[in-house]
C-alpha cells in the first residue's frame, strides 16, 4: 500500500495527493495526519487534490473526517484544487462536504489559513488582555498585542 506524504510548511501541514487513492491509503492518511498535527503543533492542514481525478463518497468522507478531527486538535483544514468535473460529480452524488473549507489553489489555501491564525491570535490576545489587565480607559488594544 502506498502512503501519502505529509509535509511541514511553517505552522501548517501540506498533503499533496498524487496517487490513485485506495481505501486503506485514505484511512492511513487520516491517522498520519492526526499524529503529525499533535507532534508538530500545526495550526493548519492543506490538502491539495488538484491531481485527483475522482472523489467518491469514501474519499469525500475522509475530507470531512480530517476537518473534524483537526478542529478537535485546534487546527483548520482547507481542501484545495478540486477539479470542476470532480466538484460537479460530488454535488450530483449528494455530497456537499459541509464543514470543510475549500480554496482554488495552495496559495489561496495558505492565505485562508493565515487569516484564520491571525484572527485566532487577536482573539487570544484579547482574551489574555481581558484576563490579566483591566482595560485601560482610552487605551484600546495594547500596541504590542
Amino acid at each position: 500500500m502506498e502512503r501519502v506524504p505529509v509535509l511541514s510548511l511553517g505552522d501548517a501541514l501540506l498533503v499533496s495527493i498524487q496517487i490513485d487513492l485506495q481505501d486503506n491509503t485514505v484511512l492511513a492518511l487520516q491517522e498520519d495526519l492526526a499524529e503529525r498535527i499533535v507532534s508538530t503543533g500545526a495550526r493548519g492542514v492543506l490538502i491539495d487534490i488538484s491531481a485527483v481525478d475522482i472523489v467518491d463518497s469514501f474519499i469525500g468522507r475522509m475530507f470531512a473526517s480530517i476537518a473534524a478531527l483537526s478542529r478537535l486538535l485546534d487546527a483548520e483544514t482547507v481542501v484545495v484544487g478540486m477539479r470542476p468535473a470532480v466538484a460537479i460529480t460530488l454535488v450530483e452524488l449528494g455530497l456537499s462536504l459541509a464543514g470543510v473549507r475549500t480554496a482554488l489553489d495552495v496559495e489561496r489555501g495558505m492565505k485562508i489559513l493565515r487569516a484564520l491564525s491571525d484572527r485566532r491570535e487577536v482573539r487570544q490576545a484579547d482574551e489574555a488582555d481581558a484576563d490579566l489587565v483591566p482595560v485601560a480607559e482610552g487605551g484600546g488594544p495594547a500596541a504590542g498585542a
Partner: peptide
C-alpha cells in the same frame, strides 16, 4: 443550484 455548490467545493 448545483453549479453554485460545485463552485463552492472548488473554493470559489
Amino acid at each position: 443550484l448545483k453549479t453554485v455548490v460545485a463552485a463552492r467545493l472548488m473554493g470559489a
